[in-house]
């Protein structure tokens, strides 16, 4: 496997639950979609930060050993996971809490069950809901995030990435598979803009954090606070408009013939 991918998928990779524990020591955990079930890959809830801000969090991680990886489906969120996140987002909207997402997830859960229970609709609903949030939201890419599933969390006012993390239309493996193996996985990473550095240069990513900093957890929390602060003063209408404008401006850099 490509060395870069190995690092993102390693068992000792910093994960969402670790940061959430530091960010919201007294978090009220929210579980389940009240319909189908619950998804262990999602760590969600709300609480107060050390700086006194009430926020909601959504974390997706792959698990750290065989047992937890199995339990978390390797971080491939299932329909109850997206639907639970949707419930958390609606709750955050109701109580006007900014939403912080921390993700490291592979692409879609390719399974008959996820198709049966409407993976497409669950993802679409979450993308739509995060887009219309009247409170600011922010995503931190702790590893990988690809495809519509990651976009559901990354449809945000601010995007922060660890310097070695990846954000793409599909995982490097999926890109090569879809294009019938014309490129190797390593080539796919270099071919398409998906690294933190490139995406920051292209204006989609707001901040990049060094993954090997000794104080990484504190650095991430600091970044969350700083980035949120810059959008907290916006009105409800401005928050929605700023989020859409961010992506519109990114799209506008693609030339028109």
């Amino acid at each position: 496997m490509d060395e870069r991918l190995k690092r993102l998928r390693a068992a000792d990779r910093i994960s969402a639950p670790t940061i959430i524990k530091a960010l919201l020591p007294a978090m009220v955990r929210q579980r389940g979609d009240r319909l189908l079930g619950q998804d262990d890959a999602l760590t969600a809830g709300f609480g107060q930060t050390a700086t006194g801000l009430r926020i909601a969090v959504l974390g997706v991680d792959r698990g750290t050993d065989i047992a937890s990886r199995r339990q978390k489906n390797g971080g491939a969120l299932t329909v109850p996971g997206y639907r639970t996140a949707l419930r958390v987002v609606a709750h955050a909207e109701k109580f006007q809490m900014p939403v912080v997402s921390l993700i490291n997830m592979p692409g879609a859960d390719a399974s008959p069950q996820s198709e049966r229970y409407g993976q497409s609709q669950a993802i679409a609903d979450l993308i739509a809901a995060t887009g219309q949030l009247t409170v600011p939201n922010l995503v931190v890419f702790l590893g990988e995030g690809h495809s519509g599933g990651a976009l559901a969390f990354a449809n945000a006012n601010r995007i922060v990435m660890l310097d070695d993390s990846l954000f793409n239309v599909a995982s490097p493996e999926a890109v090569t598979a879809i294009l019938h193996g014309q490129q190797t996985i390593s080539e796919a990473i270099d071919l398409l803009p998906m690294t933190a550095e490139v995406l920051q240069q292209r204006g989609l990513v707001d901040q990049v954090i060094e993954h090997d900093d000794a104080d990484l957890i504190q650095l991430i929390i600091q970044s969350i606070n700083q980035q949120l602060e810059s959008v907290l003063t916006l009105s409800a209408v401005e928050v929605v408009a700023q989020r859409e404008a961010k992506f519109q401006q990114f799209l506008a850099t693609w030339p028109v013939n």
Partner: peptide, 16 residues
Amino acid sequence: MQEGIYALVGMNLILA
């Protein structure tokens, strides 16, 4: 795939 993440953001922009 060939337009990478620029294709992906079409999803949220169309929904908006």
